[in-house]
């Protein structure tokens, strides 16, 4: 179980929440409500206070890089540190298997990053994070720039992750998507959780 308690920064909080392994919890709310800040704070990318733990392992007891391999955040717009797509992957074989699952052509491995569309970059970012085999996934609008087919592919991948026991916190503007994937829904406004419902309700 991912447990977040009294998490706060200068710009949001305090926030308490829990996500079980194999469970997807959706986070909704207006732009600027603090959804991305919440995810950034959980992976310790911004200064923050509060307790965060996965199962019995507390964030404060391990070095930040180790925590971030366990709990992976896929931002809405991620960064690239080399020109070539391939330079961002340690093992291209494992990456190519995932390329197929999210509808990316195998040739994309040989492309320059600048040649990719926003949607392609986004799916690549997801693949890059999944290759680390994280136990918790924090997804920030994973399908915002995708067409229907690609959205379906990504959602299938998310479901597969859930079946293998990954805990997922999903920021989305798509209410239907929240219903399809998540068992609960948290609404955030002004940096606080204002509403908590089961997706079916």
């Amino acid at each position: 179980m991912l447990s977040v308690s009294k998490l706060r920064s200068r710009l949001f909080g305090p926030i308490d929440l829990e996500v079980e392994g194999g469970e997807c919890v959706a986070v909704v709310g207006a732009s600027g409500a603090g959804k991305s800040l919440l995810l950034r704070a959980i992976v310790d990318l911004d200064p923050n206070e509060g307790e965060v733990a996965w199962k019995t392992r507390s964030r404060s007891e391990m070095p930040a890089p180790e925590w971030r391999r366990l709990v992976s955040y896929v931002p809405a717009e991620t960064g690239w540190w080399a020109d070539q797509v391939a330079a961002h992957f340690n093992s291209s074989e494992k990456a190519l298997a995932l390329f197929e699952m999210v509808g990316l052509p195998r040739e994309a491995m040989g492309w320059d990053v600048t040649r990719l569309s926003t949607g392609e970059r986004h799916r690549l970012g997801l693949v890059r994070a999944l290759l680390q085999k994280p136990e918790v996934l924090l997804l920030d609008e994973p399908t915002a720039a995708l067409d229907e087919a690609a959205t379906r592919d990504v959602e299938e991948l998310v479901k597969r992750e859930l079946q293998s026991g990954t805990a997922i916190l999903l920021v989305t503007h798509d209410v239907r998507q929240a219903e399809r994937l998540a068992s609960r829904r948290l609404t955030i406004a002004d940096g606080k959780i204002v509403d908590q419902t089961g997706a079916a309700a």
Partner: peptide
């Protein structure tokens, strides 16, 4: 300028030293 690229590396579990080296 490279903030996103640096943070992307941090998110994959690299150390800050590796990420800011370039």
């Amino acid at each position: 300028r490279e903030r996103r690229a640096i943070e992307a590396q941090l998110l994959l579990g690299r150390t800050i030293r590796e990420a800011v080296a370039p």
